[in-house]
Each structure stands twice: as C-alpha cells, then as structure tokens.
Design a protein around this nucleic acid. Structure first.
Lengths: 232, 232
DNA sequence: TCGCGTTCTCGCCTCACGATCGATAACGTC
DNA sequence: GACGTTATCGATCGTGAGGCGAGAACGCGA
C-alpha cells in the first residue's frame, strides 16, 4: 500500500469514455457516485494511477471493475486534464481515454453502472461532461479517415447494419451505397460468404461482411497537399 | 517549496516539441544536458509541474527559460507518456506539447540550446525522440485539414514562400498553384495589398498574403460520410 | 528604349472521389 | 406464380485537387 501522503501527492487518475452503439444510439458507460463530492452524480469509470503501471495498464485495471475488458475493442489516450480546481477536494490530474465496445454484446455491469445516450446526458461529476463530448469528437473524426469502425461494429454485419452504426456514431444519416464503395475501395471490408436478413419481413438476403483488420490504421491520407501522385 | 517526498511522488513533467522552419528545413529546439542521467545528450525543453498550475501554464513557464514565449504562435497538448521505466532515476509522467514558431523570427536562446533539423537528429535523452516524431506527425496531419499554417508562416508572405514552408513541414514537394487555390477556397488567406520579390533577380513581384485568422480552426470536414449536402 | 530572362498568376484540362438515382437481383409470402 | 420487400450494382453528376502552359509584371543590360 502507498501511504496517504504519497497517494495525495501523486494524485493522477485515469478516466474512460466507454462508448457503444445500443438501440441505435451512441451511449456511454457511467456509474452513479455514492459519496461526496458529487454524490448521486453520474461519472466516468476510472481510478487512481498506481506506482508501477502505465496509464493504459491502469485504465484497463480500473475498467475491469465495471465491464469485461475483453469486450473493449479499442482503447486510446485522449487529453490530460490539469485544472487545479477540477477536483474541489484535492489537486488531481486525470488522463482521459476513449474506449469502444462493439455493437451487439451486452457486458454485465455492476448495480451502480448504466449506459446513457450521449444526446441525452444527465449532469456529470467533475469535468466528465466535457471529456465525454471531446471523446465523441475524436471518435467522429477517426471514423472518417481510419478503420476505427471495426471497434463499433459487431464481428460480422450486413451493410444496412453497418450503416446504422456509422449513422448513430456520426449523428447524421449515411448512405449505404456510398459507405460500401468507400470501405471496399479502401479494402477495409471483406465478405464472410454468409448471408442474412436484416428486418423481419422478406427481401433479398444481405451479404455479410467483416473488417479485415481489427487494429487501428490510417486509411485516408489527407486530401490537401498530397505528395505528387506516383502512379505505379 | 515542496518537500522531497512530495516532489518525488508528484513527479509530473511537461515537455515541448518546439518546431520552426529554419533555412528551409523543419527544426526543433533542443538543449544539451549537463548532468546525469543522459549527460551530454540533447533533450526537449520542459520541467516539473508545480502544484497550482495547469499543464499548459507550466509548459509556458518552462519554455520561457529557453525562448521568448511570445514567439510561440501555437501550443497544443500531445500524448502523456507514462512508462515506469522511461526515466531511469525515478518514476515520472510527462505530458508532451507541440509548439510552433513562425518562420523568419530568430528568438535568442541560451548557450546550451540549439536548433536541430528533424531529418538529422542526434540521439536524444529519455523518450524524447519518439515524442518529437509524434509531434511531427500531428503537425503534418493538422496542416492538411486546419489553418495551422499560420503558426509556421511569417506574418505576411508570398505564395512561393508559403509553398516552401509547407513543403519543408510536410517533407514533400507542394505545388504553389494548388496551394493557392486550396487555401483561398477555404478562405484562409487574404491579400495584404503589398507586393514583394522573392529571389534576388528580377521577375514579376508576388502579391503578399496573410492568414485571416491566427487561432486554430478546422477547415476541412472529413470527406467520407459527410452529412447530406444542404445546399442553401 | 527595347529586348530578354525571371518569376508569378491565372485559366483550362484531367482525374479521383463522394453523392444520388434508378434498374435489377434475390429473397419471403400469399 | 405474382407481388412486396430488401439488397446490390451500374450510370451519372458535381466537386475539388493536381498538372500544365500561356500570359502578366517586373529587373536588367545592351
């Protein structure tokens, strides 16, 4: 155990914005505080950094108390918050993370923990509200120029399902036709060979796809000022 | 003063990758360590976080020891490094920053401090080499979809000069024609009304431009999966 | 003053890519 | 087997980036 003076002095916390598409909406994992400060307010999962771990190790350790960490398909560091007054009781830095859980799974969570849609949030503890909105912006940006979709989509899916995932995450309608062409041209998707129905009624069965790679990759060099086209 | 146990326990540092285009090359501000560990190695400017300041305030305070901070046109937080072994002498977290100095000015620096081209670096202390390369990647990305060029370019410039700035920062040739069209279409540049010569000999004088805004702005919504075009 | 080299500026063309729409394919259901 | 439903694909359009070359605007020297 660390003694109290060390714990107070080191005071570095990790916080996760864990996001998942649930019921067609982008939702975040929050838990309700029991004690002061901010008793009864909702907060991001997290906790104190220990002496011998990296920030990411610490984040996974604390997340494990709330969800099955194996369900988290992507974890990435965001901003480190440092306002001396962000925690009223004591000076504390906090490094935020973005965690993504694929759609479809429903990890068991403790009694004090619940999913909340990002477009209908309660008031949050500390600066967690800002962190959450920042995490959503990061997600939206990276969905467009990386293969990050793999972390939100189920292991395999029809294009209609994938369209709904992207649409919920981005917050605006997305054309399925276009989504297919873009992701196929970038070679992000491959057909599994199976087919399945989307809705209840009949109709042509959709071919199922999966993401080829499940690690983050940059897939779109930014348009402007690209190096001279070297056509092979 | 903080006592030793607190200083050891809190051990959070800030580090800046300060970049500028000098002699047509992207260069970083480094200082040469006098003491162990890593004596005689080159290192990023920075220092310890104090108890009552934010990370950015701390970063500006420490930077002031190396350069005139008023010359730093942009300062933005990067990754927080947390490997327990990154500092061999003691556990220390470090939050990295990206700082940009406009081309043209030559801030006075202390005797132990010098500019080094990023494509010809010495071996650096700690993990500062990785930080520096990460900072360059961030810069290159943001140059393409924001107005960040303002922080590297002089207050006013010809298009040929601006092309050289972008070319040095991006590491590949950039067409002046195209650069003009892109930046004008995005309304990032405006003509100052003056004209000036670029090289030594004669030639048509170039019109001078400046950036309209000197705060970071996103200027290019990512291409993919854009919301439906709402033509006004 | 008149050419001449130099540098910048602008317009035209091409190409790649996103967006949209309509036609066709592949099912369930009655 | 006809019909509604859903998925898929191709054709087309618009837009923006890249490339090239003609002309514009200078300095300089004969």
């Amino acid at each position: 155990m660390v003694d109290d003076s060390q714990a107070r002095a080191s005071a570095h916390a990790v916080l996760a914005a864990v996001l998942q598409i649930r019921q067609g909406r982008l939702q975040a994992l929050l838990w309700q505080r029991a004690r002061e400060p901010f008793a009864a307010r909702w907060a991001l999962p997290g906790g104190a950094l220990a002496a011998d771990e990296t920030l990411e190790e610490s984040m996974r350790r604390h997340l494990a108390e709330k969800v099955d960490v194996r369900e988290v398909a992507h974890l990435e560091q965001l901003e480190t918050r440092s306002d001396p007054r962000r925690n009223p009781s004591r000076r504390e830095l906090a490094t935020a993370f973005l965690g993504l859980v694929p759609s479809g799974v429903d990890p068991g969570v403790p009694a004090d923990t619940r999913w909340h849609p990002l477009d209908d949030l309660p008031e949050l503890a500390y600066d967690h509200g800002e962190i959450l909105l920042g995490a959503r912006e990061r997600l939206r940006g990276k969905l467009s120029y990386t293969n990050l979709g793999f972390a939100l989509a189920p292991p395999s899916f029809t294009l209609a399902e994938l369209r709904d995932v992207y649409s919920a995450a981005l917050g605006h309608p997305v054309g399925a036709t276009n989504l297919q062409r873009v992701l196929l041209r970038r070679r992000l998707l491959e057909a599994t060979g199976e087919r399945r129905h989307y809705g209840s009624g009949g109709g042509r069965p959709a071919t199922m796809y999966r993401f080829r790679r499940t690690r983050l990759e940059i897939t779109d060099q930014f348009a402007v000022l690209r190096p001279p086209t070297m056509t092979s």
